[in-house]
């Protein structure tokens, strides 16, 4: 089960999981190389890469949560509008209700946890289809956002602004601008949070009982039950974690944009699902990898960057590209699955 190596028990055939992960990483590098070759050296600058990270720190966190529930065989489409709700609530708290950064963080976590608890309970213990529950969650969050505040506004809170503009320089990665001055490369705080989330979840999924249980119930929940795993509690945990991560992701998003708006992060759930799928997480559950999801987000944003560099910067092109990528990878998964079933029978 070495991560980047072939499962040594089956020397001739890669395990599906590793195969999909390899495809993802290959696609990312291929795309990045294409970008460098065809779109000039802008993509060679480290800062271009770090900007992709800065832009997508929140998405990485959301996609990680999405991967968790997808590994268990479910889905959570409420994370996008939940992000908007978190942004708006934090913004209102900071500017109108005299809150500080700490209360804002608590609010973000609180909203995420509340959604996770309710959705998790409905899905795991009342056995309602995840899609319906989270669809309702999505619309609830969407409506609540405008109830909290209907219009967009930028946050003025100084403490928050200071935090927002904090830049962490990456040593040795800077570049020289046209005037010959050295510009250090930097990442925002959100990126650090995102990387921590990725690292923690990687450990959770690989080395903890809970993490392995996610895979087990995604692989075959009845079997998992027979093997002595508490399927309901495990499922509940997955949605709870996804909710909390959406809270964290929401705050990171908020930190990046510094404003509250009902239209924030619209379609983020689709990007998160797309990233997970591209990262090799199977919709049918049981297989997936946080590292893959991370690369999935990078692939997705690289292709968006390429699309906009090509001068096709109208928003519709990105959406169409994203949809095309989801479609492509869905079909790949469907083919992989049917091949596997055929091999079995």
């Amino acid at each position: 089960m070495n991560l980047f190596k072939n499962a040594d028990g089956s020397p001739k055939r890669m395990s599906d999981q590793n195969l999909l992960l390899t495809i993802t990483i290959a696609v990312f590098f291929l795309m990045y190389i294409c970008a460098v070759v065809f779109l000039g050296s802008g993509f060679l600058k480290p800062q271009t890469f770090f900007n992709i990270l800065n832009e997508n720190a929140a998405l990485i966190i959301l996609a990680c949560g999405m991967s968790l529930v997808m590994i268990t065989g479910g889905i959570d489409i409420s994370v996008g509008t939940l992000t908007a709700l978190v942004c708006m609530s934090c913004a209102v708290n900071l500017d109108y209700n005299g809150g500080n950064v700490l209360t804002a963080i608590l609010i973000a976590l609180g909203i995420g946890t509340a959604f996770g608890l309710v959705q998790g309970y409905l899905i795991a213990y009342l056995e309602i289809q995840p899609f319906i529950v989270t669809l309702a969650g999505m619309f609830f969050a969407k409506g609540m956002t405008t109830i909290v505040n209907a219009t967009q506004f930028n946050v003025a809170n100084e403490e928050f602004q200071a935090l927002k503009s904090t830049r962490i320089t990456v040593p040795g990665m800077g570049s020289y601008n046209k005037l010959g001055n050295y510009v250090p490369a930097y990442v925002e705080i959100g990126v650090v949070v995102a990387l921590i989330v990725v690292a923690v979840l990687f450990v959770v999924l690989r080395w903890t009982k809970l993490g392995r249980s996610f895979y087990a119930i995604g692989g075959n929940s009845q079997s998992a039950n027979m093997l002595g795993i508490n399927v309901k509690r495990t499922k509940f945990c997955a949605y709870l974690l996804c909710g909390i991560l959406a809270g964290i992701g929401g705050f990171v998003y908020f930190l990046h944009v510094g404003s509250g708006s009902p239209s924030h992060a619209s379609g983020a759930e689709m990007n998160a699902i797309a990233s997970s799928i591209i990262g090799g997480t199977m919709l049918s559950g049981g297989s997936g990898n946080i590292i893959g999801t991370f690369f999935g987000v990078l692939s997705l944003s690289t292709i968006k960057n390429i699309v906009s560099s090509l001068g096709l910067d109208e928003a519709w092109w990105t959406n169409i590209t994203v949809a095309a990528m989801i479609c492509l990878f869905l079909v790949i998964q469907s083919v992989v699955l049917s091949r596997k079933n055929k091999a079995k029978s």
Binding site: K209, R212, Y215, A216, G219, N220, L227
Partner: peptide
């Protein structure tokens, strides 16, 4: 019907849910 998880490793299937 096999009541194990096909997506996990052999060793994991032998020990999961017991530790």
């Amino acid at each position: 019907e096999i009541t194990l998880c096909p997506n996990l490793s052999v060793a994991e299937n032998m020990f999961i849910g017991r530790t």
